[in-house]
């Protein structure tokens, strides 16, 4: 068991546990805080995969912006610290069987794939990887159209949220 595998197992356990706690917390504010831990765990998983840019961006965007947005929207509900009781439904054994079945099915499919047990290495050095990513984003036969459409999408999201959240009393 190499150090990397131990680290992966530990980080994955933390992420899964906090994800389960997100949906099963009785107080909605605690759920938001467990979500922050789950997102941090994902960032750590990116780091173990040597995807440094995505690890740092995960913390910067998800924890630094989206988690704050989620906490703010949680604050919009009045009874933030109210104990809302146990969060599971009556049919949770059936849901458990279905999800285990889906997981087993996907695992079976992956084991049929010959590439599953081959370790993948990126073809370029880390610095060149980011340069290649940048070139791919703006090169005409690669991803420039989604790049520009993304900016239009961001502006649309901003305008839409402003219209929805606008105070109707303000003129």
């Amino acid at each position: 068991m190499t150090g990397l595998q131990i680290a992966f197992l530990a980080i994955a356990a933390v992420t899964l546990a906090s994800a389960v706690l997100v949906v099963s917390s009785r107080k909605i504010m605690h759920a938001a805080l467990w979500l922050v831990l789950a997102l941090g765990g994902i960032a750590a998983l990116f780091a173990t995969l040597e995807a440094s840019f995505f690890a740092a961006v995960q913390v910067m965007v998800y924890i630094g912006a989206i988690a704050i947005l989620i906490i703010f929207s949680v604050m919009l509900t009045r009874r933030v610290m109210e104990d809302t009781g146990p969060q599971n439904t009556r049919y949770w054994p059936a849901a458990l069987v279905v999800s285990l079945g889906v997981f087993g099915g996907i695992l079976f499919l992956f084991l049929q794939w010959p590439g599953f047990s081959v370790e993948s290495r990126p073809g370029l050095e880390q610095g060149d990887l980011l340069v290649r990513f940048g070139q791919a984003l703006v090169s005409p036969d690669e991803f420039v159209v989604p790049f520009e459409v993304a900016s239009i999408l961001l502006v649309a999201a901003m305008i839409g949220a402003m219209i929805i959240a606008r105070d109707p009393s303000r003129k």
Binding site: L33, V59, M60, G64, A67, I68
Partner: peptide, 23 residues
């Protein structure tokens, strides 16, 4: 090699600390 993004990300952690304190 992503030092600048790392610096911005740790700034975000500080903001989280403040909102935890206030709440």
């Amino acid at each position: 090699n992503v030092g600048i993004v790392y610096i911005i990300a740790s700034g975000g952690l500080g903001v989280l600390g403040i909102i935890l304190a206030g709440w």
